[in-house]
């Protein structure tokens, strides 16, 4: 008999626990009229950043992001001028392969590539997921960033044999094994964490 009473009591308690939610306002957002404000560190789509004054891309074709990517989603095509310096011809990111890990952003010493907090880029055509330099630059124009203040990286220069094909995820090490001044990719100033 006691079990029966306790069973009924608990059934009623359960009812009231769900019932009290009826009086509460819903916590969901009506997308797309309402959007959740993304945190500034949120890792969305890959974009290329440009200098605010001159409008030129910050990229110096050091190829570190290409080597850091674990999925080989970045392809960089470049020419060499008379002095042997690399000039960017095309920067191709395949968003279908990109795993949004952010290692490219951490590898870059020049604030040239960033994972912007934008995410609404779905398409109906899989080929449209491969973005080239112009699209990457355009989407990255209004992404706020801070110029990285970091020491020069101790990574060895990539050899000329690492040409335009994706070298795959080998060669240079990832940025995690880096000196600890390189702690973030343009979000907070590097000095804040070292008290």
């Amino acid at each position: 008999m006691k079990k029966l009473v306790s069973a009924i009591k608990n059934l009623v308690i359960g009812l009231f626990t769900t019932g009290k939610h009826l009086g509460r306002h819903a916590i969901t957002l009506q997308y797309p009229t309402q959007r959740w404000p993304m945190p500034e560190r949120s890792r969305g789509i890959v974009v290329l950043l440009s200098d605010r004054e001159t409008g030129a891309l910050n990229c110096t074709v050091c190829l570190l992001c290409m080597k850091a990517c674990p999925s080989a989603a970045i392809r960089i095509e470049y020419d060499k001028d008379e002095k042997g310096k690399r000039i960017l011809k095309d920067f191709i990111v395949d968003d279908g392969i990109c795993c949004f890990c952010g290692l490219c952003e951490e590898a870059c010493n020049f604030s040239a590539i960033k994972m912007a907090p934008k995410y609404e880029f779905s398409t109906l055509n899989r080929n449209d997921l491969t973005w080239h330099k112009d699209r990457l630059k355009e989407v990255g124009l209004d992404v706020p960033y801070e110029k990285v203040a970091r020491k020069k990286s101790v990574v060895a220069k990539p050899s000329a044999a690492a040409a335009t094909r994706p070298s795959g995820p080998d060669s240079a090490s990832g940025p995690a094994a880096a000196p600890d001044s390189k702690v973030d990719g343009g979000g907070e100033p590097a000095g804040e964490e070292q008290k």
């Binding site: 945190p39 560190r41 890792r43 949004f100 952010g102 702690v183 973030d184 979000g187 907070e188 964490e193």
Partner: peptide
């Protein structure tokens, strides 16, 4: 997940704990 996203930028696959420590400090 909001706590995670504000720290490392992702909600499910974080890429946060690295060899030697963690990648970013908490905001």
């Amino acid at each position: 997940l909001d706590l995670f996203e504000m720290t490392c930028g992702q909600r499910l696959t974080y890429n946060y704990i690295r060899v030697g420590g963690v990648s970013r400090d908490i905001p």
